[in-house]
Amino acid sequence: MRFLTPLANLSTGPTGTSARRFGSSAAAGFLAVALVAGCGGDAEEQASPTGAAGETTSPSEPAATDTAPRSSAPEDGEAAPADAGAATQAPADEPEDSSEDAAVEEVVITISDFAFDVPETVAPGTEVTIRNEDRVGHTVTSDEEGLFDTLVAGGTEETFIVPEEPGEYSFYCRPHPNMIDTLVIG
């Protein structure tokens, strides 16, 4: 009888009845929570408070709305391709003047100690290097869904192409959602 003590106790008296009721309803509630968590929990998009990688419309717009980013965002979310040149600033009659030394200069976003270090401004369509000096991985993910989302493993570098449209693009790190910054393109 000793080994049945907890169950026996639960079934005695008014408090025992409520305990038994509690036990079964709590277990059922717990299972419900587990099911909800299990069904929706493991996809990467679940953890992002801004929903940047989710399928629904992005709840947060870029900081500057004067130059709304293109509606034809790339499907894979990697980066905005530079092939939509006609849509922007009339580079048509520029005869590749003197092969622009500045264009060769590397533009770098550095991640160190769980913070971004971003250049003040970046030219539209520039290839930007993301240098991750931390040991864990980070992402540079636009708040607006699908503009850019680049994963950089710890201690490595990756590149991506910034959007062609000038403006301010706020972004964050998916695994560490309080890492936020803004990329100014212009």
Binding site: E44, Q46, A47
Partner: peptide, 9 residues
């Protein structure tokens, strides 16, 4: 909820 993103990091 955090498992997916932590796999990235």
């Amino acid at each position: 909820r955090l498992a997916g993103n932590f796999s990235l990091a």
